Amino acid sequence: MVSIYQLKSRFQQGLRPLLGTLVKLGIRANHVTLFAMLSSIGYGLWLWRDAGSPLPWALLPLFLFLRMALNAIDGMLAREHGQQSCLGGILNEAGDVVSDAALYLPFALIAPTPLLAVLCVLLAFLTEYIGVLGPMLGASRRYDGPFGKSDRAFAYGLGALLLAWNPGWAVLADWAFAAASALLLFTCANRARAILAEGDKRV
């Protein structure tokens, strides 16, 4: 299934020159993971406080790109510099869902039906939970689309730009969240199907 996640390897190559500098500065993967989560919470609080201002919405795509870069960097530091740990795995998975909630729940403030925006966040949690179940069931961690983490960041970033440009776009938010919910359910099904297929092959 086509997903922006498939561009991850190229994205990582562009960030790799930074790794040596971070290691020399004593910055570890867990430091990056915590910074990404805490900064996401801070940005989300800004969105809640100033939801009527175009500035936080206009800058959200830039912040989402930064968050994606931080997520890639912490993974590369862990794998390529011997920093993998159980704590790091917990922080990585928990940090992603906490950051998603912090950054995406403020969209409920502009949606005609706020519960649809909340539903999308809950379904995003479900997609990641199913993905994490892979190793527990004899399969790999699944990142299948069509609406994985990177795809969601792109969609929310685009929505934020539209809101910053013209707040009137908010009247269409329910349709966008309904479509996103359908894509998230499809993503859940794809990940579950991939885990089952991979697990069956190993039996």
Rank of each mutant, 00 (worst) to 15 (best):
G75C: 02
S9I: 10
Y104G: 08
A164M: 06
A101V: 06
L87F: 10
S53G: 11
K24H: 11
I90Y: 13
A117M: 09
S181K: 01
L116T: 00
L55S: 13
G199K: 01
L109D: 09
A180S: 12
G131Y: 03
L55W: 15
S3T: 15
L66N: 02
G134W: 04
A117Y: 04
M37C: 07
F154P: 07
I4G: 05
P135N: 06
G89M: 00
L60W: 02
A102I: 00
G88Y: 00
L185S: 10
C86N: 14
L60Q: 00
N71P: 02
Y143C: 12
G157P: 01
F35P: 03
G20Q: 12
V2Y: 15
S3N: 10
S150T: 11
A94P: 03
A173Q: 03
P17M: 06
L183W: 03
L133Q: 08
L34Q: 08
R16Q: 15
A29M: 05
A94C: 07
S39I: 06
G159P: 01
Q83M: 04
R28H: 13
S181F: 05
L122A: 14
L184V: 04
A192R: 07
A101L: 07
A102Q: 00
C120W: 05
E93P: 04
A179P: 04
L59K: 04
F35S: 14
F154Y: 12
I73N: 01
R202E: 12
L60Y: 05
L133N: 05
L115R: 13
I130C: 10
N30D: 09
L34W: 04
L183G: 03
A194E: 06
K149M: 11
A51E: 08
Y43T: 03
D200C: 12
P56A: 01
L116W: 05
C86H: 14
L133A: 12
V121Q: 03
M37V: 10
D200K: 14
L119N: 09
W175V: 15
Q12S: 12
N92D: 14
A29N: 00
Y43I: 04
V98I: 15
A180F: 13
E198N: 08
Q84P: 09
V2N: 14
C86W: 15
V23Q: 04
L19V: 02
D200L: 14
V2L: 15
G199P: 06
L87H: 05
R152M: 08
S39K: 02
S40C: 08
G88F: 02
G82R: 10
W48I: 10
L115T: 13
Y5S: 14
L15W: 06
Y104F: 14
N92I: 05
G88I: 03
A197Y: 09
A189S: 13
L183I: 07
Y143Q: 09
N190G: 07
R191Y: 08
L66C: 11
Y156F: 15
G131M: 02
D74I: 00
F11T: 04
R142D: 10
M68C: 12
L15A: 09
S85C: 05
D151S: 09
P146V: 10
F154W: 11
M76N: 06
L62P: 02
T33D: 00
L158E: 12
A170R: 09
T33H: 06
V171L: 12
D50P: 07
A117E: 09
L47Y: 09
